[in-house]
């Protein structure tokens, strides 16, 4: 059962009609193939035009769509030999941040990323993709492990933000994020980050200090959620749509600002409509980004990565 977003109502109505027709034709034997095709083409056109001009706030809805491919879906669709690795060796295993070895496009890599979960139980278990310090410390451990064996690191970013909780603060959420940023910047192996859904603030940048940062067409990446920004600057969370607009959090805006390197196209109507196809498109883009980094010496990788982040805001703002 497809979950429709508010602005997808016209599409939902058309697709509902198609279902109804199919149901009717099953019983009566009346040939309605032509009518179904006509409606399907109309629904596709509508979807295409809707998704071609999504507002930033609509993109935030799409980026958070429950049926979008999450870490485990991407792994299932495009990662061979996936071997999950667990724990930070200090305090706990945090399943809000997944990681493990595997092959993408035949290339062995270390995968790390937020996992939001796919049903209610899973979402609670994965804490809605909000990692605690132990999650970030696990990410650091896996990055260093990858470095020891010369394996590239690939991160999938999809989080509302790092978990705001008493325990997280007590165990040094800020310190864990800071060290994770530092670790990513100093990695002596290729590092590709993909913003696949929601790139929420410090919890996102902790996994995104990469040589190449790619981003799904309808993903968002922001310093604060539109709701949080609205409640602070407008003193009212209801202004979230305006805040989303002002924050310039879409892939298209971020590419213009020179903060991401490439936009990964999504299937018609968003990655949630065809998670497997979206994962394939993502795997291709990851492979292409890794290929660009082939043959770079470790010192060059670290130096260029640093220069890339230092150049942000200095050049290319248009």
């Amino acid at each position: 059962m497809q979950t429709y977003l508010d602005f997808e109502k016209p599409v939902a109505e058309l697709e509902g009609k198609i279902e109804e027709l199919r149901h009717v034709s099953d019983g009566s034997g009346v040939n309605i193939v032509e009518e179904v095709d006509r409606l399907k083409a109309k629904a596709d056109r509508l979807l295409r035009s809707t998704y071609a001009k999504l507002t930033p706030w609509q993109k935030a809805q799409v980026a958070r769509h429950p049926e979008r491919p999450h870490f485990s879906d991407v792994v299932k669709a495009v990662v061979e030999d996936f071997t999950p690795l667990a724990g930070d060796r200090r305090f706990a295993e945090d399943v809000a941040l997944a990681g493990g070895l595997g092959r993408v496009g035949g290339r062995a890599v270390m995968l790390i990323g937020h996992e939001k979960g796919s049903d209610t139980e899973g979402r609670v278990r994965h804490n809605f993709g909000m990692a605690r310090p132990e999650g970030y410390r696990k990410a650091m451990r896996l990055m260093r492990l990858a470095e020891r064996f010369g394996l590239p690191v690939v991160s999938l970013v999809d989080t509302p933000g790092a978990f705001p909780g008493i325990d997280a603060e007590e165990r040094g959420q800020a310190e864990a994020i800071a060290r994770c940023i530092q670790t990513g910047l100093s990695l002596r192996v290729p590092f590709v980050a993909a913003i696949v859904g929601e790139g929420g603030s410090g919890g996102a940048i902790a996994l995104a200090t990469a040589d190449r940062v790619i981003m799904f067409e309808h993903a968002i990446y922001s310093v604060i959620s539109p709701e949080g920004c609205a409640s602070i600057l407008w003193r009212d969370g209801a202004h979230a749509a305006e805040a989303a607009e002002a924050l310039k959090l879409t892939a298209q805006d971020l590419q213009r600002l020179g903060l991401i390197d490439r936009i990964v196209p999504e299937p018609l109507g968003g990655a949630q409509r065809d998670p497997a196809a979206a994962a394939k498109s993502l795997a291709q883009a990851i492979g292409a980004a890794l290929a660009e980094l082939d043959g770079l010496a470790p010192d060059d990788l670290v130096a260029r990565r640093g220069e890339k982040f230092l150049a942000m805001g200095r050049t290319g703002l248009g």
């Binding site: 800071a178 530092q182 910047l185 410090g202 996102a204 942000m312 805001g313």
Partner: peptide, 22 residues
């Protein structure tokens, strides 16, 4: 914390300042 009026550009100051102190 970050200056949200500069959007993701302010978020990028986290890696940039980390490079500085490193």
């Amino acid at each position: 914390g970050a200056r949200m009026q500069e959007g993701a550009l302010s978020l990028m100051q986290m890696p940039r300042t980390t490079i500085a102190v490193d």
